[in-house]
Simulated scan of single mutants.
Amino acid sequence: MTLWPGLAADAAAQACPAGWPQWDAFARRHVQADGRVVDFSVPEQQSTSESQSYGMFFALAANDRARFAAIWRWSRDNLGAGSDKLPAWQWGRREGGSFGVIDPNAASDADLWFAYALLEAARLWQMPDYLKAGMALLGQVKAQEVRVMGDLGPMLLPGPVGFEAGRERWRLNPSYLPLPLLRRFAAVDPSGPWTAMVQGAARLATQSAPQGFAPDWVIYDAGKGFQPDSERSVLGSYDAIRVYLWAGVTNDGDPLVAAVRNALAPMTRAVVSYAAPPEKINTVTGAPEGRGPIGFSAALLPWLKATGAADALAAQEALVREKWQTWSRAAHPAGAAGDGEFNYYNSVLSLFGWGWLQGQYRFDAAGQVTPAWACAA
């Protein structure tokens, strides 16, 4: 078996895996035949731009071309992705019972994942139509969701509407900016804001965490720098867990990732102390609250691997594996009571985190993805 490029050929290195049962289970439960990715854990039975874009990335990693095409087609036709506007972030059951767009505002993290999945599908599958669509969507992001924010430079708003927090003040979400995606955009669009945004994203991750814990939301003030978002929340929880996830899956050769990992090192110590990731952390005081769901444990697997926390990694992986084996032995038809522990969001975090540890995909230092099906090529 060929080992992943860039990984030491030791017992910890992952060989190219055969199949991806977690994706197969997720697709059976959440991906309709027409390409709609459904979150059954909420009353709206919603589909979001996040769910659609993540679904495309997982389908690419699984070499599931038919589902990739269906998910993109549904997103384009129902959310508006690929037209002259950004995709609506929320679609589902509206008041009155009909289904359609609930909130037309866009979510910029999903827009980045849409564009990335399309660009990488074009490269890996040699499909120029996906390249055209990905570049067009990237152009919409630049036009509508990027602002120059003082010394921070060009930065990604969480969406085109609703994130101005006053004069020269903006509300930001650190989990919206995975370094591998920005690296890839910088390569395909060298005249765009992406190279500068990589630097800004690293500053956002390192400077918005005064106690070493990433917040869900933060204010950037052009005159004062990063400030706690006391109006919305000072917690780090269901959004912020992805900051550690993205830092974990980023290639070690990225020159900025070490600083991010060092700045957020207290999360590793928290996992060791509590034998699980906290569900919520007050990022101003550092006080934890509650035990995170199984998806948090899965999301932190790449982080624990990257930071050398071998014992914590083994414990959290064993927990994820045990929970998955117990869950998978039961019947889980689509829409069954929100799918329990492996609901939509926990499953997504598991696909990203546990999938990476299993070797289902890797990013290189330039942001290109190598899926398992291509790793031996």
Rank of each mutant, 00 (worst) to 15 (best):
R29G: 01
R147Y: 12
Q90R: 15
P193L: 06
A59G: 08
A136Q: 14
R167H: 13
Q358Y: 01
W74H: 03
S175W: 05
A365I: 09
R73M: 09
F68N: 09
F57K: 07
W74Q: 02
G92Y: 01
R76E: 11
R269W: 05
R261Q: 13
Y244P: 08
W327F: 13
A259P: 13
R73Y: 07
D151T: 15
L357K: 06
A115H: 10
Y244T: 01
N105Y: 00
A240M: 07
D216F: 09
E341C: 08
R73G: 11
G290D: 08
R232V: 15
R269C: 00
E145S: 15
A270D: 03
A299H: 08
A374Q: 14
A61I: 05
E50S: 12
G253F: 14
R36Y: 01
V218K: 03
Y345C: 07
I102E: 05
S328H: 10
F342Y: 15
F26R: 03
L157H: 13
Y244S: 06
T268L: 05
S83I: 04
A209K: 06
G200H: 03
A265V: 00
F163L: 03
A314M: 07
P193W: 04
A66M: 04
A62Q: 04
A165N: 13
P277D: 01
W23H: 01
G359Q: 06
S175F: 07
G159H: 08
S191N: 13
W125H: 11
A115T: 11
W72T: 04
F68C: 04
D189C: 02
